[in-house]
Design a protein around this nucleic acid. Structure first.
Length: 105
DNA sequence: CATTTGACAGGAA
DNA sequence: CTTCCTGCCAAAT
């Protein structure tokens, strides 16, 4: 099961529920490397399974979307997020309100 | 194998 | 609030 950092990121990303968002930093932290936020972005870009990995639910720490390799780019990404019920203000997701909370207990 | 690039973040000015 | 600089990791060249 390929326990590489990138793999863990994919695994976590696939767990992000609809209507919630996560940040590169958070995924990096959950993956075990709080400093590897960049690597997370790289992994998302490489996303092996676009249908399985909701990379559009991964935004910047400030709630701003950094990019999207899919069709339409960030424009489409924004649209998808809003469609899932996520509210935005000035092109920025309200992270403190829609940030994903990983399975505790 | 060495260097550069990139879908980041956080602190300082 | 905006802009610049530094740190860090993985993939690409």
């Amino acid at each position: 099961m390929t326990e590489s950092f990138t793999s863990r990121v994919y695994q976590l990303a696939s767990k992000i529920p609809k209507g919630k968002v996560s940040t590169y930093a958070q995924l990096a932290t959950l993956a075990g490397n709080p400093k590897a936020a960049r690597a997370v972005g790289t992994a998302m870009k490489h996303n092996p399974d676009m249908l399985r990995i909701p990379c559009h639910r991964v935004v910047g720490s400030n709630g701003a979307m950094r990019g999207y390799a899919g069709a339409g780019g960030v424009e489409m990404k924004k649209k998808m997020l809003m469609k899932e019920g996520i509210e935005m203000v000035n092109e920025r997701v309200i992270v403190h309100k829609f940030l994903w909370q990983p399975d505790l207990l």
